[in-house]
């Protein structure tokens, strides 16, 4: 795409649509222009602006791993005007994508360490990118543990991938649903993510914890990690704030002087603790 216009999106074809959970879909997107596919690259943790012409743009992470070439994936819940319009789209349709924007999970720095992924609900997508990225470079890391919870069994996203992770001997997967969200044949845990994490008693030694989830889950998860000795610079999370441009100009995603679109979305707990309460 030859343009000097930083607002002009790449055209992407929806190659595949997967229904993940009620109102939650995953799109596999392919660049329509082969040169775009050639020149595009991203790193795990980054996000983009997805658009439906005539409706507008919406911000979410790239949910696929950079190690999987030739496409990108996004997972979204139907909520606002754009995600509602996206939900109505069919395979073969064209949408717009701008990106990648933002910083990345510093996985190079995590070499030789164990990884503990903790996610809740619709916040698995940003983590799925880094999980697959790390699994594709499995030899770089020691133990990999994934703790994932949702309101109910139906609300768990990436069910097929959860099965794949569960089957892998080199991954420990713990899934949980909120009390009352279980089905008769549910074999996972029942309880909130922080409680399940506490029961798991994770080892903090040489371990990085990556936490993504709704604010309430994050709030109760950090103290558990602290209890097990995770230092603030060993814990990572991602922030979401309303955005329009994605590159530090539209002026709304800042938390104090920190711009989520440029300085984030990935933050260590140490960085997070230095941010003012404005997110």
């Amino acid at each position: 795409m030859e343009t000097q216009n930083i607002y002009l999106p790449y055209l992407m074809e929806i190659e595949k649509i997967s229904e993940e959970a009620p109102f939650v879909k995953t799109f596999r997107l392919k660049f329509i222009n082969p040169e775009d596919a050639e020149s595009f690259s991203f790193r795990t943790g980054q996000f983009g602006e997805y658009s439906v012409a005539g409706v507008g743009e919406s911000t979410f992470c790239i949910a696929s791993a950079p190690t999987r070439k030739g496409y990108i994936e996004c997972t979204f819940r139907k909520a606002g005007s754009v995600t509602t319009a996206l939900s109505d789209m069919e395979e073969g349709s064209t949408l717009g994508f701008r990106g990648p924007y933002g910083n990345v999970f510093p996985i190079d720095e995590w070499k030789g360490k164990s990884l503990l992924f903790i996610a809740g609900g619709i916040a698995l997508p940003p983590m799925r990118s880094v999980i697959w990225n790390c699994l594709d470079l499995r030899e770089n890391f020691k133990d990999i543990t994934i703790v994932y919870g949702a309101k109910s069994v139906a609300d768990l996203v990436y069910k097929e991938e959860l099965r794949l992770w569960d089957e892998r001997p080199d991954v420990k997967l713990v899934t949980t649903v909120d009390p009352g969200g279980e089905t008769p044949d549910w074999k996972g845990e029942v309880g909130f993510v922080p409680t399940v994490l506490d029961k798991l008693a994770p080892k903090s030694e040489n371990t990085i914890a990556i936490v993504c989830g709704p604010p309430i889950m994050i709030k109760f998860t950090f103290p558990i990690l602290e209890k097990y000795g995770f230092a603030d610079d060993m814990v990572y999370t991602t922030l979401e704030n309303r955005m329009k441009c994605g590159f530090g100009k539209c002026g709304r995603c800042n938390v104090g002087k920190t711009y989520v679109c440029k300085d984030g979305p990935v933050f260590s707990l140490k960085q997070l603790k230095q941010l003012p309460d404005e997110y």
Binding site: E57, C250, R252
Partner: peptide
């Protein structure tokens, strides 16, 4: 300099517009 980005369309054609916004 804060702005919003909005789509405006009529039928099949339209445009993406940048417009002033305020904190």
């Amino acid at each position: 300099a804060c702005f919003d980005i909005q789509d405006e369309s009529h039928g099949k054609t339209g445009q993406r517009v940048r417009c002033w916004d305020s904190c």
